[in-house]
Design a protein around this nucleic acid. Structure first.
Lengths: 203, 203
DNA sequence: AATCACAGAGAACAGTTGTTAACTGCATGG
DNA sequence: CCATGCAGTTAACAACTGTTCTCTGTGATT
């Protein structure tokens, strides 16, 4: 079993998580490159200098947020691709929609900082997304429709799917409750069109 | 002919353009929400207060940049869709690549602020992109392949194309010179797959 | 020729920022 | 039980921020 960590380390991790949560909240209406160290510590209710005990800079806080935000997405991605039956696409889109409803701030953060002003964070997101894309590719390879596909083409298709998921998620965030159904419908049709292209890709 | 504007207004417009240029430069490695007013005026070589003669806030500077950046894209979009022949896709991707090479900062700015932290700018970009999508839709409607398509489906396809263009452009920015060919190849295959889906969409 | 409008300068404001240094209290390992 | 390590505090720093008010020079208007 896992090593029970002492009171001290537990408290440290709790504070660290408070930093992550506070930052995620503040980042709903600004980008990481404008997030101030003091701003975060103020939100946590702790002295500015305490920040340095956990992160060298706000950029590193951002990298930690990438891990957290994209870690929770692994499950969704897996479920999305492995969904079976003729309702596969609807299921996948519904899964995304649910995840957006549960972790809106995570999605916002990733969508924003994917092209954001902080190099280190951009790199971290790119790396994680590449990992996702590869996972999707191996999942796609299992499907019977993928017979005869080259690894390159599978990777291309996987990337298309991943980008589409992220875009759909981001669109859902910006949509008002009554617009969300519309967003879901369009996203579904997009996925369906891609699926059609997939069926007739070879030959 | 157009009204020749006086020395005074000409100088004002020149300064305004200097603001836009300086901001665009500074925004290559940070986001708009962290761009300071003083920072811009310093780069232009002008007193901080002069800023207010041109823009109420940096957010409005951002909106002006959206007009400039996306205005130059209209031509490219038009050329992209109206390109004919069986090399249509290659031509389209090449046009995008050229535009990225000519105006990298514009692309960076749009890709970054599309999901950025400044609401007003996000809205401006969304509006312009919606306009683009509509232009692409009417252009697509002319193609013989679009016979029997509903307006809704055409709009869906147009959106897919526009998003794909932007993503390709953004990917080109992040790619080293030797990676760019690879990016172009993948983007081309993505477009081709979408085109295949388009051909077999009906029925 | 006299007046006005207005782009830009200059100085000052209160408030913010990141970072350093020296500290305090307490959980932990020997 | 005591010495140590270390999370978090306090105080201070120079530098920076957006904004206001006042002023100046000069192109435009009559």
């Amino acid at each position: 079993m896992s090593h029970t960590l002492g009171v001290r380390q537990a408290q440290k991790q709790r504070t660290r998580q408070a930093f992550l949560d506070a930052a995620l909240g503040l980042l709903e209406e600004q980008s990481l490159s404008s997030l101030g160290l003091r701003e975060v510590t103020r939100a946590v209710g702790v002295a500015p200098t305490a920040f340095y005990r956990h992160f060298p800079s706000t950029a590193d806080l951002g990298v930690a947020l990438v891990e957290e935000a994209l870690g929770s997405l692994h499950v969704v991605i897996a479920g999305t691709v492995s969904a079976a039956g003729d309702e596969r696409i609807e299921r996948a889109v519904a899964l995304i929609a649910r995840h957006v409803r549960e972790y809106p701030a995570h999605i916002r953060f990733i969508a924003r900082e994917r092209n954001g002003g902080v190099q280190k964070v951009r790199a971290a997101i790119a790396e994680q997304l590449a990992r996702f894309t590869d996972e999707v590719r191996t999942a796609l390879a299992q499907h019977p429709e993928s017979a005869g596909w080259s690894d390159d083409d599978l990777l291309m298709l996987a990337g298309l799917y991943v980008d589409q998921m992220l875009m759909t998620a981001s669109n859902l965030l910006d949509a008002s409750p009554e617009e969300q159904e519309q967003v879901i419908r369009v996203a579904t049709r997009r996925m369906r069109l891609i699926a059609v292209g997939r069926q007739h890709w070879l030959g």
